[in-house]
């Protein structure tokens, strides 16, 4: 109640940093975020990772709703917002307040894009997520739909999932075709969102290392003023034993 209201439209005041990635399935964003995490950890930063739609609070409900195909565009949207709220409160805010770097695989922009395509009012979704924190860096991995499809079909992911392919929208009986139509529409929405929220677009058809290079350069710039609180645990033990002239026990 005493905190200033959080809002997507102005920078947050916490000591930590929030870095997020967006993009359709098959854009390679999760790979890039993982590589970024490896790099940051190797540099000694305290990093916390959080992923879209992963809170325990509604995971079971979402799963059940998806399975029974009982979700409407609005309940689908609200369940994801609940998940996000819960993660914001438990996973994102505490590390940001503690001065850590938070990496988020998908953020509210995923909802803005998907829900709009499902027919939910874009204005409403933005108001719904008004309590979110504005990221310090937001990367959008832009990829043509055919590239995404070939990556997904060639990879280990197997079949497209019902909701990810937008099968609830009755676009096509064919899973791949439905995915193509649905995700193409999402790409169109992303294009609008990227300029609305000034996200950094990465050409996701480039080689993995090239993209990662670009990402690291951006992050490195953004972290120039950042004073990381280095973790002491893991080191403290050694120091403790050294002080008493003892060797570390097994």
């Amino acid at each position: 109640m005493s905190q200033p209201p959080l809002t997507l439209n102005q920078p947050h005041q916490f000591p930590g940093k929030l870095i997020i990635v967006e993009g359709i399935d098959g854009s390679g964003k999760s790979t890039q975020l993982l590589l970024l995490q490896k790099w940051l950890v190797s540099k000694g930063f305290n990093v916390f990772f959080t992923e879209w739609n992963s809170s325990e609070l509604v995971r079971e409900t979402t799963r059940r709703g998806k399975k029974s195909k009982a979700l409407t565009p609005t309940t689908f949207s609200l369940l994801h917002a609940t998940d996000f709220a819960n993660r914001l409160y438990h996973d994102i805010l505490p590390p940001l307040k503690a001065g850590m770097i938070v990496l988020a695989d998908r953020y509210v922009y995923t909802a803005f894009a998907r829900d709009a395509v499902r027919g939910v009012s874009p204005a409403w979704v933005r108001k719904l997520y008004n309590f979110a924190i504005r990221p310090d860096l937001a990367f959008y991995f832009k990829v043509p739909i055919e590239v995404a499809i070939s990556r997904l079909l060639g990879g280990m992911r197997g079949q497209f999932k019902y909701y990810e392919a937008g099968m609830d929208m009755g676009l096509s009986q064919d899973l791949t075709e439905s995915f193509r139509i649905f995700q193409s529409r999402i790409l169109t929405e992303y294009d609008k969102i990227v300029s609305e929220y000034e996200m950094i677009t990465v050409d996701a058809t480039q080689e993995i290392e090239e993209q990662q290079n670009e990402m690291r350069q951006r992050v490195s710039q953004a972290l120039e003023q950042y004073k990381p609180k280095r973790g002491t645990h893991g080191r403290r033990e050694t120091v403790f034993w050294r002080r008493f002239g003892l060797s570390k026990p097994e």
């Binding site: 409407t72 309940t75 917002a81 609940t82």
Partner: peptide
Amino acid sequence: LDRWSLSLLYATDFADRLEH
């Protein structure tokens, strides 16, 4: 439950009843 999650759980419940 934090304030947002609590309210959003109610909203989801309400939306489900509204539409169904």
